[in-house]
Design a binder for these strands. Sequence first.
DNA 1: GCATCGTATGTCAGTTTTGACATAATCGAT
DNA 2: ATCGATTATGTCAAAACTGACATACGATGC
Lengths: 104, 104
Amino acid sequence: MDREKRTRLQAAGWKVGSAADFLGLSPEDALLVDIRARLASALSTRRAKQQMTQAELARRIHSSQSRVAKMEAADGSVSLDLLIRSLLALGATRKDLATAIAGK
Amino acid sequence: MDREKRTRLQAAGWKVGSAADFLGLSPEDALLVDIRARLASALSTRRAKQQMTQAELARRIHSSQSRVAKMEAADGSVSLDLLIRSLLALGATRKDLATAIAGK
DNA sequence: GCATCGTATGTCAGTTTTGACATAATCGAT
DNA sequence: ATCGATTATGTCAAAACTGACATACGATGC
């Protein structure tokens, strides 16, 4: 993905997800947005299942509640790195990640 | 993963892969290293299969040959973001990514 | 009403990642 | 052995990401 386009998208306030390709997104861009959304949702449900608050998760991964919120909102300002690290911190396995990405 | 540990690992010149958990790596750290290695190798073989040089791939993703080399070496200085974007740029699907991560 | 708890959103300085460049190392082919 | 092409490794300013903080929003209970 072009850095320019990423920036433009972010500036425009993109956070959506599966509905994000209705305008000029290249296929790769759309896929990336999609993947981010899937990981975000996986994180959200996994955390919920463990009855953990965003603040608790934040502590566990040495981050902050606001960043966790952004992660779960699939905000364009969070990296896949952080999302994946968070999922791992909640006990996700490689297979879990794969499932989250591939879509069940 | 702790930022401190990441930094230590990087300073120590970590690039290995599956054999990287022989010392103080937490399970999550080891998993992350493992995942990076798997994506790296997927990128490498996918690029090879398309008979593309690192320089060509670099151009396509608006990056540089050196960074592509680092990606394929699973260098600790490259993000999963970039690896995944590169794979997508080579036509990988979500399913392809999932397979690469889950390990066939 | 109004607290409390969890979540969302915005901002920003500090840190990490990036592309670019230089340069070395490999590997064929001549 | 000397190209020529491809890949590896190091460095660094610029760009992106991060944690922390402030603060707002929404429930739920009192």
